[in-house]
């Protein structure tokens, strides 16, 4: 039984959560992706706030389940997972380490500074120069706005000819 003397520090809990992989992109953790918004104790109950990447992302409930399982395995028996919608998740919350891991895994990390002009402010937004995660060439082309998951687009490198996923910037 955890009480105010034995309960682990939220920083320690965050470090534990760095070991929980994202179910769809297991190269990065839920902490790397910026999905975990808050970790704090509400007397002797631990409250973990998570945010969905996309409103229809089917991984969100799996992520909640895996966080719960990981923390129960660490002896935290009273915990509550809260879903938080605001502010909406942005790829700017992916950590530097997360970006490095994505690239090493073969997924081009998102361009920094999400947002940009709205489709109404500029007639057509220009495609960004996305570097190939394999050969680093920026001579790449977008094949499709969507890839194997909503968060990724499909690209192809014109130099090394390798197709690759790009983690969309939102």
């Amino acid at each position: 039984m955890i009480d105010s003397l034995t309960r682990p520090d939220p920083d320690q809990i965050r470090r534990w959560l760095e070991e929980v992989p994202d179910p769809e992109v297991p190269a990065v953790s839920v902490m790397d992706l910026g999905i975990v918004r808050d970790v704090q104790w509400d007397s002797n109950e631990l409250v973990v706030a998570i945010t969905p990447t996309y409103s229809g992302c089917p991984a969100t409930s799996v992520i909640a389940f895996e966080i719960e399982a990981a923390l129960r395995a660490r002896g935290i028996d009273r915990l509550r997972i809260e879903r938080r919608l605001s502010p909406p998740w942005t790829t700017d919350w992916i950590t530097r380490e997360g970006r490095r891991r994505l690239e090493a895994y073969g997924i081009a990390p998102p361009a920094e500074n999400a947002g940009g002009p709205s489709p109404f402010d500029r007639f057509l937004r220009k495609p960004l120069a996305i570097a190939c995660p394999r050969c680093k060439s920026e001579n790449t082309e977008r094949v499709s706005e969507f890839g194997s998951t909503p968060c990724k687009a499909q690209y192809r490198c014109r130099d090394c000819l390798e197709p690759f996923d790009y983690f969309k910037c939102i």
């Binding site: 996309y54 229809g56 992302c57 969507f146 909503p150």
Partner: peptide, 8 residues
């Protein structure tokens, strides 16, 4: 994927 966003 667009369908999935909308269902979400």
């Amino acid at each position: 994927n667009v369908a999935l966003d909308l269902i979400g």
